[in-house]
Nucleic acid binder design. Structure first.
Lengths: 168, 168
DNA sequence: TATTGTTATACTCTATAACTATA
DNA sequence: TATAGTTATAGAGTATAACAATA
């Protein structure tokens, strides 16, 4: 049945294409990385469309969420939690601060570190964003039962742990 | 049980961190986009490590596969099959051609188009890459039973179809 | 008019090295 | 010595606009 399902899937892809020629993707549709990549790109595309009028990207939503739930966190802690490099985080936070959504404050215990907080404007935006995210999440999970959706996330976590860990 | 599983997962993430403070990720671990992104990044990192000595990235493996299985295809057809923009494909193909792995030939039916083929060197490389890919795939799927792995891919395909389709 | 390949361009993501000021 | 934040930089992914040649 799995091989049969694969063929059916390939037929579906062909049918949705504008091309008249059938294109053989070989093993690609059976590879986890291929399926993961395509699904992730599709979901992010949907996310960007839903959040377009707020000019918020997935990584920004993640940062705002972590700062809101953990006020006073250091930049490095946010970076570790979300898998962002320290160097790349600076520009991301600069942007959120410039837009008046988040702010760097002094740390009580470490003069090198910044303590991060959401502004009132940032908290107000998050109340809106959570609703938008709910609509987005419901749409991309529309074809999945709640049980399947939870199972999918569980499988994805297993995959993440099986693969290689980053360096830093 | 799902809520319980989520908490256990968050504890696991904390334990693997170097930080002593527990960081609340809120709903993030329950979002498909978040889990998808993290899994995809981890899998690609593993892929890059496995293919490093061949200097092959996932998109290049996909292009070589499609050209090998469908000799004579036009650039636009490869682009549609793999979700690559025409403009971005030019540089990718330039590189493969410069390395002597693929080549642009004249199309018998359309003088605007290029017919794409693998060189003998490209075919020989693919014989090696398929073995490397098998090892890579086995590793990232090590924690999954064959049935779970197939089910995961099926769910990912559903997700892809539920999300928004691209413009072009 | 539409399509194919191409060039130019821009923005984001990912990554490394190196600097400064603190610890 | 090590860590926190920063700057500079580079490569890769993604995207749009516009052009010449051809359909």
């Amino acid at each position: 049945m799995p091989e049969k399902a694969r063929r059916a899937d390939q037929r579906a892809r062909r049918a949705s294409s504008l091309s008249s020629e059938p294109i053989d993707l070989g093993q690609l549709p059976d590879l986890l990385g291929y399926a993961l990549r395509r699904a992730q790109v599709a979901v992010f595309r949907d996310f960007l469309k839903c959040f377009a009028k707020f000019d918020i990207r997935p990584v920004q939503y993640g940062i705002l969420t972590v700062i809101e739930l953990n006020p006073g966190l250091k930049q490095q802690q946010v970076c570790r939690a979300l898998g962002i490099r320290r160097a790349n985080f600076v520009t991301l936070l600069d942007d959120l601060e410039r837009r008046g959504l988040a702010e760097r404050g002094p740390s009580a215990t470490d003069q090198r570190a910044n303590a991060l907080y959401l502004t009132e404007k940032g908290k107000a935006l998050m109340r809106q964003l959570r609703k938008v995210n709910k609509a987005h999440e419901d749409r991309i999970a529309a074809s999945l039962s709640p049980a399947k959706r939870r199972f999918l996330i569980q499988l994805l976590d297993q995959i993440e742990l099986s693969a290689e860990a980053p360096n830093e």
